[in-house]
Design a protein around this nucleic acid. Sequence first.
RNA 1: GCCUAGGUGGCGGAAUUGGUAUACGCUACAGACUUAAAAUCUGUCGCCCGUAAGGGAUUGAGGGUUCGACUCCCUCCCUAGGCACCA
Length: 988
Amino acid sequence: MENKSKAPKYEHAKIESKWQKVWAKNKTYETKEGGKKPKAYVLDMFPYPSGDGLHVGHPKGYIATDIYSRFKRMNGFNVLHPMGWDAFGLPAENYAIKNKINPEIAVKKNIKYFKSQVEKIGFDYDWSREVNTTDPGFYKWTQWIFLQLYKKGLAFESSEPINWCPSCKTGLANEDLENGKCERCGSEVEKKPIRQWVLKITDYAERLLSDLEALNWPESIKESQRNWIGKSEGSEISFPVKTKYKYVLLHGWKSDSKSCFIPWLKRELEAEGHEVVALDMPHPLIPDVVEQADYVLSKVKFDENTILLGHSLGSVVSYRILEKLKTPIHKLILVAGLIEPKFRDHDRLMAKYLMSWKFDFEKIKKNVGEIVIIEDNNDVIIPDGESAVIQRALGGLTYRLEAEKPHFCGMVEPIVLEHCLDKIKVFTTRADTLFGATYLVVAPEHPLIERLSPQITNIKEVQAYVAKTIKRTEIERTAEGKEKTGIEILGLTAINPTNGQEIPIWVADYVLPDYGTGAIMAVPAHDERDHQFAKKFKLPIIQVIGEDLPTRLENWGGAYAGYGKLVNSGKFTGMESVKAKEAITKMVRGKIVTKYKLRDWVFSRQRYWGEPIPIIHCPKCGPVPVPEKDLPVILPKVKSYEPTGTGESPLAAISKWVNVKCPTCGEKAKRETNTMPQWAGSSWYYLRYIDPKNTKALIDKKKEKYWSPVDMYVGGTEHATRHLIYARFWHKFLFDIGAVSQTEPFTQLKNQGMILGSDNRKMSKRWGNVVNPDDIVRDYGADTLRVYEMFMGPFEQGASWSSDNLMGARRFVEKVWRLAGKVSTGRSHVLGGPDKRLETLLHKTIKQATTDINNFNYNTVVSALMILANEWEKAETINKEDWLTFLKLLAPLAPHMTEELWSSLGQKGSIHLAAWPVWDESKLISDTVSLVIQINGKTRETIIIPTNLSEKEAVKMALDNDIVKKWVGVEPLKKIIYIPNRLLNLVI
RNA sequence: GCCUAGGUGGCGGAAUUGGUAUACGCUACAGACUUAAAAUCUGUCGCCCGUAAGGGAUUGAGGGUUCGACUCCCUCCCUAGGCACCA
């Protein structure tokens, strides 16, 4: 009682503001470079400074890193523990629009409020390194990284249809969707083709996946990323399409219809049922291509089902033919074709002087549906790269490969035949079931439908189905339990390459256009979806797996998707699935390939509040990167920053900013007006803390090498497949260009569990269950808040707020405050004298606090400290050295109070710079231990024995015990299990 | 459907990794102090039988390994999260 009155009252507000000022003045937590200390980079995911401010859930992670960083500092580490603001992006912008404040002003205001909230909790941040993604000095380097990506071809423009949020009025990345809805506002997204910038994150898919293995991250986050990347290994297999065409084959200079591959190709195509015309053209030695073209036109009628093939000079004849046609033909195939009078071996004077090389490219393009250009890598006549020259003039697809004989002069040229025939390429992970592929299905978006439309007899119905399905949103298309729809494409059939079977081709929207090849082989016996589809449309189902299955196909409810031995599979019958995959792929000349579900990162937003993309569009030079010396491209101040919804950002309206001179040619040009997504700045901000003031380079190499990577990264799980994938991607890219020294940015990651409201619901204004940390700090103190949040339960688990439990933490803090009154210079006493038990307990507590803080098991640290405090409360006096040790253990958790008690005992310097206590292993052992005695594995008695007693003596002591005697009786001991200092089990 | 993490008193949760299950805290109840209340302090507090001494069952369910299982193995149920018509 006397001690109680001696101690001054615990006034948290006074103590906390006092020490916060002292720490700031003394720069207690400023990180200094160099020295011989090992480093520890401890990092929080930096917040959006939203208008609402923080609720008590936000600081949970910050408290955890704060404890960890203080602990590391006291253990002799050079600690980097910074904080900053992720202030670009939709939340900040929407807040600004809603409140009619310029985003720049709104963000400044919000940051000020956030910072005041954070500072009250007493974190050890080095504020001299504070970063803000909207600061031009910061986003200069965000733009710089974009330019490096652009230079390496990893940033490109595309007009593919992307996810468009009609409410946020901007394009979105795949990662920004939640069940097909905009993650921010919940609107259903539409597919809209708008021009946008895309980052080629898919180039890094394999590394992003395989490097996960070595990371010390929660398994669930790694699993999310694995799911998101979605790797699957399978085969690409081509199915020939059976069509009816008229082929016109034109031979080259000095040849005729009997030379090279022409006769062979004619036979092969005729065998497939096509009509083939191979003409001998007039004057093969000194040709006049105009005359030859007229000759061909007089002999052959060209229409939409004609395929024209020109070999060598025949290609030039084909241009002249196409110039003169009234209606387009289906396809033009150029084999070793040419478009200019250049030759590898010698000049051909007739080609140079007797012929014109001017062509009407527009007319030619108009008169042909599809162009294929095949170049021989070992050609001796046509110059290297001629296919690219032709492609520039005419478009089409080019293939550079090795012919059987140079210049495609072989009698047999299978590659030429392959390009003459139409094919559907499918991706499958189950090549072993290929014999059971009874039909093909293509996505409604598949180019084949358009390309082969003249051959499709029910084209009207097919087009109607396509039009209907393409309009549907992603959710409608993939809605669970949805009946499968589709329509057969009549007039076309495909050939199963294993057995030559003719199979139908369907179009159905259960096949997705942007995964695999946009077409599948359907194996209804062994794929649930195909099974449903086949049942509905009465398509054949053939079992090819399961020779050894107990039940037959008819008895299965649906498809059997497992592995097994093959049946009905020709020479592969009896083979195991796994082996058959490779063997069958090989037989049909398929390719083993790897596919990923990860899509490229749609990187532009048609919004105001983001980093401008540093590109200038010049009518002459195309897109030109802004020279690095001109960075940053400053986001201009505007009056109206509301989204336009037109696919253009509000920046497009600022002509003063938009109109610039092309950096390459100096002519009039326009700035890119799209901005970057909110994830841009956060993809590299952790590097900026290392070197926050650098204006010359992204980061100083020496500093980067010292501090990278982040040793402990803490944040919420919601960033699993966005921030954490994007940042890893950028980091790997920066590693590839030599800007950083590590391949991964964050070696260890912890997720804090969410703090829910006292009603078990997510804290939100909507439920009125939000608790503001300012109120808790004011009424109970920051130290109490910190201790409470750490004591709530395991760090990675969620828990709901409870004011009762908060009081428990407050009581503990006050108890510690009161204990200070018992401190004396003698040994810790209980009534009657010094107590060795308390010494043992102290050392146990040091050990537990040390290992538990290292593992983020803060709830058990608090409990251990409580146990010691409870014991001391029963003691008369507390030894001063023991007390100081205890304060140090508590210091990371309750920094203000411990600092106050530390200094009140006359200690020099901050407790937070003191050395962490070390436990003495020998002091952990007490003189006596309680030994558990079990009879047949059941606990019956506990006896106190001297430490390290031998088995013999322990058994003797146990058998002396009355209760043990009662249980053992006269039975002989069958077996004795003795665990020294712990347990004795007597089996009778 | 596939994958991942979980399931322990009235509640939040501990358990030295196979060795006394329920530490620590909250709640509740009783007592002390007080004119009274709050605060504080002290004590009791998982379940069933029993006045008690004592005994029995018990870590989502069932089975197994073991002298001994919250902990390891198998089957199943439930909760949370990720992916999902991805061929």
